[in-house]
Simulated scan of single mutants.
Amino acid sequence: MTGLIILAAGCSSRLGEPKQNLVFDNKTLLQRAIDAGRGSGCNPVIVVLGANAGAIVPVISGQDDILIVINPEWQEGIASSIRTGLAEIEKDDRVSNAIIMLCDQPFVDAALLQKLILAKQQSGKNIVACSYAGTIGVPALFDRILFAKLLKLQGQDGAKKILKDHPDDVATIEFDKGNIDIDTKGDYDHLLNAGN
């Protein structure tokens, strides 16, 4: 079984409002991420919130098939959110893999997440990451054997640190639009205009 951790705890400082609630194609960015997780068959689907949780929870509440956890240490950086989500995943012994994804990559869909799971089965590697814009990154799938290393991440170290530390254990899949994420108002405007 593969669990999914959606990292959505940041304060969106460069944007000036919670990016999680920005609407693209009639859904918030966070709801798009949740729907991708649902459609992929991942279980559990965990949403890690932190900053602005009070403004985000009402938008996604009432969805019984997802688990919302609050990261009280979100200001430390992305590592604290990975640890928060993984602590929940680890409670279920049936979960053999975890996918880590961000809430602000609008083109992640269920098919992409399913490709990560399939590539894990076919490659036998302990990590499957997405390849885009000359780099590899999230969404990325990690075998349970690496959970302990993910739990040791600190500060701004994200999943990419594990990818760099274990290059021989990484399989990749192509994700052409993986470099599109929303950090600024300009990013969001570009996303909206590109759809027209």
Score class of each variant (00 low, 15 high):
M1L: 11
T2Q: 05
T2M: 03
G3A: 10
A9N: 04
A9P: 07
S13I: 14
Q20P: 01
Q20I: 05
V23Y: 04
F24R: 01
K27G: 05
T28L: 00
L29T: 08
I34N: 00
D35K: 01
G37V: 00
G39K: 11
G41A: 11
G41W: 06
N43P: 03
V45L: 06
V45K: 05
I46S: 00
V48F: 04
V48E: 02
L49A: 07
L49N: 03
G50M: 06
G50T: 08
G54P: 00
G54S: 06
I56S: 03
I56C: 04
I56H: 00
P58N: 10
G62Y: 04
Q63D: 15
D64M: 08
D65K: 06
D65Q: 09
I66K: 02
L67H: 11
P72W: 07
P72C: 07
E73Q: 13
E73M: 12
W74S: 07
E76D: 15
E76W: 06
G77Q: 01
S80H: 05
S80I: 08
S80E: 02
S81C: 10
S81Y: 04
I82C: 07
R83C: 08
R83A: 08
T84C: 11
L86D: 03
A87N: 11
E88K: 14
E88V: 14
D93W: 11
V95M: 01
V95Q: 05
V95R: 06
S96G: 12
S96Y: 10
S96D: 15
S96F: 10
N97M: 05
I99T: 03
I99H: 03
I99V: 10
I100Q: 02
I100M: 00
I100K: 02
M101Y: 05
M101K: 05
D104M: 08
D104T: 06
Q105I: 13
D109R: 10
D109K: 05
A110T: 02
A110E: 03
A110M: 01
L112N: 00
L112M: 11
L113V: 07
K115H: 12
L116Q: 01
I117T: 10
K120R: 15
Q121L: 11
Q122W: 07
S123A: 12
G124Q: 08
K125L: 13
K125Y: 12
I127T: 03
V128D: 04
A129N: 02
A133C: 12
V138N: 09
F142Q: 02
D143Q: 08
R144V: 14
I145E: 15
I145Y: 13
F147C: 03
K149L: 12
L150K: 05
K152P: 03
G155D: 11
D157H: 11
G158T: 01
A159N: 01
K160C: 13
I162F: 05
I162N: 04
I162L: 15
D165N: 13
H166S: 11
H166E: 09
P167K: 10
P167T: 10
D169S: 13
D169A: 14
D169T: 12
T172Y: 03
I173D: 02
F175T: 01
N179C: 12
I180G: 04
T184K: 09
G186W: 10
D187P: 04
L191K: 06
L191R: 06
L192Q: 14
L192W: 08
L192T: 09
G195T: 14
G195D: 14
N196S: 14
